[in-house]
């Protein structure tokens, strides 16, 4: 019962912080917008060309934007000492981390997937492709944040932590990238994206089962 109390408290606090600090979700969105609008300048504005790269650009942009939020998971808490409340809690640390990642995924995943169709317009993608892309961003953000929580936990308040987090996490997100963008590509080619969606869901479940445990171990290592 107190486990439920503790995890609820973690989620509530995270959402309160999101409500307090608009920049926590507004900045990743701005970053996403800017990254997506850089590419046409580099490759040219012909809509046929843009249609081909659009899915990839948007998906990578969303992954990068989500990744920028990873230091938020533990760094601020380590600075003000609240992390010790979590570490010293009698409840399992993995559950508390899961609650925190869940709250962040919820806020960030919804925000990023909500704006994805808008960016799809920039790249002349048809509506059904945009919708599929949006759904896959929603599924990819939790996977990325779960995997990323391990690196974020290892690099709590380490110098150069943000860039090293990216180096550690991005290669691990390649399967998510392949199948997330792949599902939208299938829709673009008029094929069924069922296999990609199933695999995408499988990755999320696998990450859900393993990552919080690894992140808890990581946090104990780095704060020891």
């Amino acid at each position: 019962m107190s486990l439920r109390g503790a995890t609820t408290a973690v989620i509530r606090r995270e959402l309160q912080l999101f409500a307090q600090r608009k920049s926590d979700w507004a900045n990743p969105l701005m970053f996403f917008l800017i990254v997506c609008s850089l590419f046409p300048f580099a490759v040219g504005s012909e809509s046929e060309k843009l249609k081909l790269i659009g899915i990839g650009v948007i998906f990578v942009g969303a992954l990068l934007a989500a990744m920028l939020s990873l230091p938020k998971l533990f760094d601020e808490d380590a600075r003000d000492g609240s992390l010790e409340l979590m570490l010293a809690s009698p409840e399992p640390l993995a559950a508390l981390i899961l609650a925190r990642v869940a709250a962040l995924s919820l806020a960030l995943g919804i925000a990023l997937s909500a704006v994805t169709p808008v960016f799809a317009l920039f790249y002349a993608l048809p509506f059904d492709v945009a919708a599929m892309l949006s759904l896959n961003v929603l599924m990819a953000v939790p996977t990325l944040l779960l995997v990323g929580s391990i690196a974020a936990a290892l690099l709590v308040s380490a110098r150069g932590g943000a860039i090293l987090t990216a180096v550690l996490v991005l290669p691990l997100t390649i399967p998510t990238l392949i199948f997330g963008a792949g599902a939208a590509l299938k829709v673009l080619y008029g094929e069924s994206p069922a296999a990609e969606l199933a695999l995408q869901a499988a990755f999320m479940l696998l990450a859900l089962a393993l990552c919080p445990l690894a992140a808890a171990a990581a946090l104990k290592i780095s704060t020891d």
Partner: peptide
Amino acid sequence: NAFNDALSVKENLAYAAALSG
């Protein structure tokens, strides 16, 4: 202090209490 600057005193205290059961 283990308090978050952006949250109110009450929110901080409730969080700490819930985490310690």
